[in-house]
Design a binder for these strands. Structure first.
Lengths: 366, 366
DNA sequence: TATCGTGGCACAATCGTTTGTGTAAAGTAA
DNA sequence: TTACTTTACACAAACGATTGTGCCACGATA
């Protein structure tokens, strides 16, 4: 065990200039330094100036670890998402990082890879990293929510987004999917469609369940039959969109409109319809969901629903900051639902009367 | 608006169970706890078992802040990217997070929003957060690199990716863009093209400069003229692709092939070509760059270059970990160039002879 | 028996900030 | 003048984990 005296040979690991160094140089206590830097009232203006100047001269950077350790709270927010790919999650994360950064927080990001076990591990890591709060979008395999009790029992602020734990005892930000299904279907009806099919997603996921519900709401409101034979349940891939369309077009009484709960299945439907020689939107109007990047590139361009990804991230951060600022005090959980925006494009416009898109304001439920 | 107060009154902020608590319960010192948990040799197996059991019972979570403060190094890696959107950066971040997580690190992510000042601030934040290392992709407005000297003078491990500081005194992971331009153009030549145009990007960015260079390399190799009148300099948007194509097709001697340095401009070119009644690829073969999601959706599907986003993230982490593990010891900076992958699709295939795509192995330069 | 090595644990300093409390001096009011 | 606030700063104890060093006892070796 050689003593190895701190080998600061040259520019190796330098600049650990701490408050103690500043204090020594000025001949004052660390208390004074600390309070001067945080603009505490008990430090005189003259001293404050001196400290600030010296800090700048030495390019002093506070050690956030030490600060967080002492204060018990870091300036970090934790994010747990299923993955960082596609259009949706990156955009939400973009919104989160932007909003967090504006509020003086930084984000540490974890992927669950759609795996509960990983999700659990991620929560543990974030807890032990002493983050100030956690934002979560559930993995697909999360059916049991007990690992979140641990988070809450630690008093750790927690907000769900998009894929949320249902109920009114959690903080959550979601897109109003039911409204999305509703406005989308209503739009198709307004374009003259009378037999509207629905390419639905797995119904154990609330988002797809709600989109289907909105679809039925619009049909009922218009006095159209709620025909289960027009609803195809799939996994929302492009290939399954093709398959669904094929089955629908093979029936005796094919639809004149399709509301797909996802853009990829809408794309598949569009391709199959064109392949079979149907004109879109004249013979068949199509609307998708999610505003994927490719929806402006298809021919015709695809009517869809924008999910307001960035707003979701921002809203989630706002809510989380509220919980954080409530500190220990009782905070009544809240659910925020963002209003989706209908983007009317070529695949659904038969006449030019209606181009209304739903207002894009956030409303709060409950 | 039901009141439904579910306010957590009692079990508010609990479980700050520390090593001290465990030590007290077992009647041993904190040293023993700490060493038992980190499997230190000086702790007997019996005691180790007891400690581990108690830790599990109380669901003990080490405080990473304290640990990092004491050890001087956290288990966090910092990432600075221009933004988290589109296809490229999210995919790279995905690769980074995955690789980092596998190595026991977590990532804290910052956006520079293409702004040097913000980039500088991000570096400061990461430094004061005591991260173990930093991964950077430069902002578009970064022309002066002095803020990175501060990082290095602190002895902080640093690796650039994609948008890098050029030179052999930095660690960097890039795509071999020149190779990409070369294989792409060579492919077009192999398909019978003899007048190949190039939609080039801003030449002050190394990626576009290199793609153009590869393009010329292939032409020269094939004995084709290097005709500057076939090179259009634009900003790589879809609209500018349309514009470029329009100009090219208006000339006396229009091209029979186009290598676009980006998929969006390739898309614009494709659309304009089709609009003017050209058959793609028969009359005009087109190849893009980046493998954007939409390239498999266009009609015809678009030949392009895959940028190996995830591999880039992983390679960057690997390199960074090497630097970290070198600790203070001298480490010779290294540049890693990933070999791009040519994805041959409908927009460029005139006959079926050639479908070779470049091997996808990473090679190291210098 | 004397010596030595070593396994097994405790002491206490340390990382860099924060903050409750103490305490002078200076200012204000009576 | 006395008494009471402010103002301006210092002391020192935290926060929770890590680690060099010291100590004791035990078995092994000579």
């Amino acid at each position: 065990m050689a003593p190895r005296k701190k080998q600061v040979s040259d520019s190796n690991n330098s600049n650990p200039v701490s408050m103690a160094d500043l204090a020594r140089e000025l001949g004052v206590s660390m208390t004074t330094i600390s309070r001067a830097l945080s603009d505490h009232h008990s430090i005189g203006p003259a001293m404050k100036q001196k400290v600030l100047k010296l800090a700048k001269k030495y390019n002093y950077q506070p050690n956030r670890l030490a600060s967080a350790l002492r204060k018990g709270k870091s300036q970090l927010l934790g994010i747990v998402v299923p993955y960082i790919e596609g259009r949706f999650f990156p955009s939400v994360v973009h919104g989160i990082e932007t909003a967090a950064s504006k509020a003086g927080y930084n984000v540490i990001i974890c992927q669950s890879n759609e795996d509960v076990a990983q999700e659990r591990r991620n929560l543990d890591i974030l807890l032990s990293a002493q983050v100030a709060g956690i934002l979560v979008s559930l993995s697909r395999t999360t059916l049991d929510y007990r690992h979140f009790d641990k988070v809450r029992s630690r008093g750790m602020p927690l907000v769900f987004f998009d894929r949320v734990v249902e109920g009114d005892n959690v903080n959550a930000v979601i897109l109003d999917d039911q409204e999305g299904g509703y406005v989308s279907t209503r739009h198709l009806i307004s374009q003259g469609c009378r037999r509207i099919a629905h390419l639905a997603g797995p119904q154990h996921l609330n988002i797809y369940k709600n989109r289907r519900q909105g679809y039925f709401d619009a049909l009922r409101e218009a006095g159209l039959p709620e025909d289960e034979s027009l609803v195809m349940y799939f996994d929302m891939t492009q290939q399954e969109g093709v398959e669904g369309m094929r089955q629908l077009l093979a029936s005796d009484n094919p639809p004149d409109g399709v509301f797909a709960a996802g853009d990829y299945s809408a794309l598949g439907a569009l391709q199959e319809a064109k392949r079979q020689g149907l004109r879109v939107p004249e013979d068949l109007a199509i609307a998708g969901f999610s505003n994927e990047a490719f929806t402006v590139i298809t021919e015709p361009t695809l009517t869809t629903i924008d999910q307001r990804c960035e707003e979701m991230g921002q809203a989630a951060v706002r809510l989380l900051l509220e919980v954080i600022e409530a500190d220990g005090r009782p905070f009544t959980p809240r659910q925020v639902a963002l209003r989706p925006e209908l983007l009317v494009r070529e695949s659904s416009v038969r006449h030019l009367e209606e181009h209304a898109s739903s207002a894009s304001v956030a409303t709060e439920k409950a």
